[in-house]
């Protein structure tokens, strides 16, 4: 007989910052497991799923998206204050996301070029990870995150154990699955050796090189990989572009991109790397 001690279900909140919503949708995408999740936790705030909003404090907050406006920077601090455990999900929340490409350019120039009324735009010069603003209890990488890893992390926090989310290379995942190495057997440039596992080796299974969606693995040796990418025919600009994608502002990827194709310093004062800039 299952033991059923009546106890308060933990309150789960899902928050969105600058992002495409894809990572939050991974939770809805859990389908078969979603009912079990809804049974195990009280979904207190999750606008993608329900308009009902229950006040905090929250036992677990999942945070998607990066901090890109003064309002964001202020709001994440309030969320942190109301959350016992705060878990960031996805490349935006853990590395600033694709929108962190602006960190390397003049954001005022973008605003002037894109918007008819630039004076309506209140933005920070940078798009940064949640970790740069508040204390984060766990970071789940990926663009988007893997739904099985998300379930694993929720599961681990609910059961008071360490999540099984290894920070090792994509290569280990390929080898466990029996996927033939595309770089060695086909000469296809691949970021797998410096990228964290977790996606289910999606691209190499289809003879494509890894795009680095899950960001840098632990102790990534990007310089050694870049040398091999050159040997496989990539120009410096190709290497820089490969590292400047969804995890462009993750430190190891940013450094390697800069080493291969340095960018001119952003014009104007807006180029200062804003960290934790509040309203």
């Amino acid at each position: 007989m299952p033991r059923k001690v009546p106890k308060r279900r933990p309150k789960l909140a899902v928050w969105k910052f600058s992002s495409c919503d894809g990572c939050q949708l991974s939770l809805l995408d859990c389908e078969d497991e979603l009912l079990a999740v809804a049974d195990a936790v009280e979904i207190a705030y999750f606008l993608e799923a329900t308009r009902v909003a229950i006040h905090g404090p929250y036992d677990v907050s999942l945070v998607e998206g990066s901090i890109s406006t003064p309002h964001d920077a202020e709001r994440i601090r309030r969320i942190r204050a109301r959350s016992k455990v705060l878990i960031t999900i996805g490349a935006c929340a853990t590395a600033g996301g694709i929108q962190a490409l602006r960190n390397f350019r003049d954001v005022d120039g973008f605003v002037r070029a894109v918007y008819a009324r630039p004076d309506f735009i209140d933005t920070l010069a940078t798009s940064t990870a949640i970790r740069d603003h508040v204390t984060v209890d766990f970071e789940l990488h990926g663009c988007p995150i893997s739904k099985s890893q998300l379930l694993e992390v929720l599961n681990a926090f609910l059961n008071g154990r360490r999540p099984v989310v290894p920070p090792h290379s994509q290569c280990i995942e390929c080898k466990l699955h029996g996927t033939v190495c595309v770089m060695v057997a086909r000469g296809v440039p691949c970021l797998g050796p410096v990228t964290q596992a977790g996606c289910g080796n999606l691209c190499p299974r289809f003879a494509r090189g890894c795009y680095g969606c899950f960001g840098p693995k632990e102790t990534p040796n990007t310089a050694a990989l870049a040398k091999q990418l050159t040997a496989l025919g990539w120009r410096d600009a190709d290497i820089a572009n490969a590292f400047r994608s969804f995890n462009a502002d993750a430190e190891a990827f940013r450094r390697e991109a800069d080493a291969n194709a340095p960018l001119p310093p952003p014009a104007g004062e807006g180029g200062a790397r804003a960290k934790g800039v509040g309203g």
């Binding site: 079990a36 154990r161 050796p193």
Partner: peptide, 26 residues
């Protein structure tokens, strides 16, 4: 030069090291 990617150990026919992972249901 080493990427610490672990490919050598994965393809080695004698490398035997493992780790242990615990999983739970919700």
């Amino acid at each position: 030069r080493c990427l610490s990617c672990a490919n050598c150990t994965m393809v080695c026919p004698t490398c035997f090291c493992t780790t242990v992972e615990d999983t739970t249901d919700l």
